[in-house]
């Protein structure tokens, strides 16, 4: 009853907390050409754990912004304009804060829960694994 597979169907969080689950979901998203949304989600979690006194943290914040938000990537398309503006202003003013990507991550997560996660649970790649 508490097998990894039963946990995968419980929630997106439990899927992403499992190594095999996260790997399989990532493979699915690569096929669907939206793997950037998952990488962004993990990047937000990694960023939140970084030390704000470390100069690397500022460089990572900029890298996340450039890679996922500044351009017209799939992540940028799923974010509200106000959310993108908020992050852009923080980057420009060098207001680097652990929570600066929280709202963006929530928006991406909600989108994944409603779309990609549901599709994953009925996908061939998932059913074959099961």
């Amino acid at each position: 009853p508490d097998s990894p597979l039963s946990r995968w169907t419980k929630s997106l969080h439990s899927l992403l907390g499992d190594q095999d689950g996260a790997f399989l979901f990532r493979t699915f998203l690569e096929r669907e050409k939206c793997v950037d949304t998952l990488d962004f989600w993990f990047a937000c979690n990694g960023f939140r754990q970084m030390d704000l006194k470390d100069t690397k943290t500022q460089r990572v914040a900029k890298a996340i912004y450039k890679r996922y938000i500044e351009n017209n990537s799939i992540v940028a398309k799923q974010l509200k304009p106000a959310t993108k503006t908020f992050i852009r202003d923080n980057i420009k003013k060098l207001h680097i804060d652990s929570a600066m990507f929280d709202q963006a991550q929530t928006e991406i997560q909600t989108n994944m829960e409603e779309n990609a996660y549901q599709m994953f649970l009925t996908s061939d790649i998932y059913l074959e694994y099961v």
Binding site: G17, D18, A43, G46, R59, V60, A63
Partner: peptide, 20 residues
């Protein structure tokens, strides 16, 4: 010094689940 891409990759990897 690591490139921004390397730092970003490390950040992503650090947040991924580890083997149970």
């Amino acid at each position: 010094m690591d490139s921004e891409d390397d730092l970003l990759q490390k950040c992503i990897t650090s947040a991924m689940p580890r083997q149970r």
